[in-house]
Design a protein around this nucleic acid. Structure first.
Lengths: 209, 209
DNA sequence: CCTACCGATCGGTAGG
DNA sequence: CCTACCGATCGGTAGG
């Protein structure tokens, strides 16, 4: 006689993902970024952590869920960095500078997350896709409203806060496409220079003149 | 007895692709842009032009070649628009404005080409990939050298021509991600405003003050 | 964590 | 331009 036995709350393997799960996510992220989601097989991910493809299903529930978790984690980290940057100062001009610096730092340091997040939205099935789109909208709104506040205060001058906010976001995201450690600029230098460029776009004075 | 008979130069089907080939390219472009290259099947492309997948091979030599042709055509059109824009005036400041306008116009009007060109580079096999990368480098160099010339002439002021050229290119490419006809701005309005933003980035006076 | 395997998909070819 | 089909691939399951 078979008894239906749902997973118990105390089941450690379901509630407390161990290091192995983290290693799988890191490997999947790297492979999704370098080969693309569809071109990456479960066997590839398994091999990257020293096991066979089917064994992955003891740790994660599937390839699609792996992608969704990676992308949600990426957006949450980006939004957290943005919130912290904006909350760290009161002056609107300085808030924009720090928000841009956080944005650029993220895209320089977490290039794989940026690649996957920007390229694989179409590979996400529902409801993961909507979860990501909501986060992206909220993130964009944060920049737009910051610029609108600066315009209201008279410290920024723009024709369209929307166009300028998109421009700032897009130029920062582009950093992920070419940045590498040991190049012409450090992450800090890059963040500062993009902060200056953003302030030029809103026609605010920059520190260096 | 079998005789090796290479394709003759006079073979019309190889030299003069008809409307059907153009229709196949357009259908493939749309599907690659909306579903991704790997997620698009030859059967999908065939269905879009009213035939079966295997019948496509009477017109094109394969899926990979189709992608390469689309991407090379995209870059060549973009570079041609850039060259025409720059050659149309002498003043460096105006050359930058027109180059940015051409860049933005292209990314607003040819969104599918932009999506595929920016997302499917990794799907390209050699030698197609190198053909594309060479064109992209040349295009980027055009903007960078234009900015460097403006700096030499004293009409632009930038800390890094490279960073500013990347910024201008990236913000213009971003237009493809959200522009649609009937929205807040027309293509012409968009092109002009991005021209202004680019001139702000190089710290040159804009027409409107 | 493994091997064996299922069911489905796909690019491209054969042969009309 | 078609159907039939090949050979290969892949996500996920079964059952240890």
């Amino acid at each position: 006689m078979k008894v239906e036995r749902p997973h118990q709350p105390g089941d450690a393997s379901a509630e407390l993902p161990d290091d192995r799960v983290a290693a799988i996510r890191v490997a999947a992220l790297r492979l999704f970024a370098t080969q693309g989601y569809r071109a990456t097989t479960m066997a590839d991910i398994g091999a990257a952590v020293g096991i066979r493809g089917p064994s992955l299903y003891k740790h994660v529930s599937g390839k699609q869920v792996l992608l969704a978790e990676i992308m949600v984690g990426t957006m949450d980290a980006l939004i957290a960095a943005h919130t912290e940057a904006v909350d760290s100062v009161d002056d609107t001009r300085e808030q924009l500078r720090r928000a841009v610096e956080a944005h650029v730092r993220y895209h320089a340091r977490r290039r794989f997350e940026a690649f996957v997040g920007n390229r694989e939205i179409g590979s996400l099935e529902q409801p993961g896709r909507d979860r990501i789109l909501r986060r992206r909208s909220a993130y964009e709104r944060g920049f737009r409203e910051l610029i609108e506040r600066g315009v209201d205060e008279g410290v920024f001058t723009v024709r369209s806060a929307r166009l300028v906010s998109y421009s700032i976001l897009d130029m920062g995201m582009g950093v992920a496409n070419w940045f590498h450690d040991g190049g012409e600029f450090s992450v800090d230098q890059l963040a500062y220079q993009y902060g200056d460029l953003a302030l030029r776009l809103v026609a605010a004075a920059t520190a260096g003149g």
